[in-house]
């Protein structure tokens, strides 16, 4: 046996913390958030791009939307995001009952958002407005419908993380919910408000 074989293994070289360690929550959730933002971002940019070809038609179609209901939905969703953030704080303090309570409150407001959205769609349908009415409403139904589908997914995720309630799972679930919130604060002014 040679001398070199008797030597203890060299200590692992020191590795400085990566910037990835700085990122809050789970990396895969951030990948999902960024990819979702790219999809919605492209959709909103396309909406404004098509609007250039028919600004008057888009303004006229926008008048058929219920701005107050959408404004209420904005308050509902940002408040729901606040509740989800409080759930994360409670989870970090190990308070499971409070965590579940805030998650349930966030989900309940998500359901309120969907009820208002369904009422909005029903009102449009009663006026004979559908996906094929014009370009404005094609984008309107695609973007708001896709967003509403994310709200449904978010409610399911919040329900699942409240069953398996750990600081990590709650943070990941809340991050998805905040992404839904983030998309809405960009979607709401572009579709409902810009003239």
């Amino acid at each position: 046996m040679s001398d070199t074989e008797l030597q203890p293994p060299a200590p692992a070289a020191y590795e400085p913390p990566s910037v990835l360690d700085e990122l809050p929550g789970d990396l895969m959730m951030w990948v999902l958030i960024v990819s979702e933002l790219l999809v919605f971002g492209a959709g909103l940019a396309a909406f404004l791009g098509v609007r250039i070809t028919d600004p008057l038609g888009f303004a006229e179609a926008q008048d058929a939307l219920h701005r107050t209901a959408a404004g209420i939905n904005t308050v509902v969703l940002v408040t729901s995001g606040f509740f989800a953030a409080l759930a994360v704080r409670m989870a970090e303090h190990g308070r499971k009952a409070a965590t579940r309570g805030w998650l349930a409150a966030a989900s309940a407001l998500g359901i309120v958002f969907l009820v208002i959205k369904v009422m909005e769609y029903a009102e449009k349908a009663s006026h004979g407005i559908g996906v094929e009415t014009n370009s404005f409403f094609t984008f309107y139904y695609l973007l708001t419908g896709f967003h509403a589908a994310h709200v449904v997914a978010g409610i399911v995720i919040l329900g699942l993380v409240s069953i398996r309630c750990t600081p990590r799972t709650v943070e990941v679930g809340a991050a998805f919910w905040h992404m839904v919130d983030l998309v809405w604060v960009l979607l709401f002014p572009v579709i409902y408000l810009l003239r």
């Binding site: 809050p24 958030i33 989800a84 991050a175 992404m179």
Partner: peptide, 11 residues
Amino acid sequence: ILSRYLGLAQA
């Protein structure tokens, strides 16, 4: 939302 809700203020 990015800085406070998603916690990027700490990153």
